[in-house]
């Protein structure tokens, strides 16, 4: 298969004696994982339906699976979806998976580092920039992130200057 795959959910363990499994979803809205085509680790489509929930996990039944022994063999299996199945984005919206790995540069073209992750603690998204000196968090706003070019694999940043309050 040529298209890239995205990890969308994981089978944690068997549940009950009738071949059900407990699935942990990684999608933004946990229930969304069922709206995508699910592929197993061998890129084969899987057919499942939700039959219940346990806390934030979903009890799912694989089509044709009736025994716990069969279900136990699936423990730890990852479920993927083709990347091109993800919905289109609005302007200035990016998938985390597209941002991670981009090279960061200044306006003048000087290399800064690589985007390692995207975090959000409730006050907007933050790019985790891995530099030679360590890790830096950059707010994902137009003041500091001037341009994101997925085609060129780079992001243009204006590093913020920090001011101290308590030293005055």
């Amino acid at each position: 298969m040529s298209t890239a795959l995205i990890l969308i959910a994981k089978i944690e363990r068997a549940h009950g004696i009738r071949g059900a499994v407990l699935i942990r979803s990684f999608t933004q809205d946990p229930l969304d994982f069922l709206s995508y085509t699910l592929l197993d680790e061998h890129h084969k489509p899987v057919d499942i339906e939700i039959i219940g929930t346990v806390k934030d996990r979903y009890i799912c039944q694989f089509k044709g699976m009736t025994t716990r022994t069969e279900a136990e063999k699936l423990k730890g299996m990852n479920l993927y979806t083709p990347k091109d199945e993800l919905p289109d984005l609005d302007e200035d919206e990016f998938y985390h998976t597209d941002l991670i790995g981009l090279k960061a540069e200044t306006k003048e073209g000087a290399a800064l580092g690589t985007i390692e992750a995207v975090q959000n603690f409730g006050a907007g998204d933050l790019l985790v920039l891995k530099t030679e000196k360590g890790e830096e968090l950059i707010p994902f706003i137009k003041d500091f992130v001037l341009n994101v070019s997925k085609a060129n694999g780079k992001v243009i940043l204006e590093l913020p200057s920090w001011v101290d309050t308590e030293k005055e």
Binding site: F26, L89, F140
Partner: peptide, 21 residues
């Protein structure tokens, strides 16, 4: 302080989106 978490968790990216504000 509510917006500066003291514990960091790096989960899977899956279909998570970020919007440039």
């Amino acid at each position: 302080g509510e917006f500066s978490a003291t514990r960091t968790y790096y989960g899977h990216t899956a279909d998570k989106k970020a919007k440039r504000g």
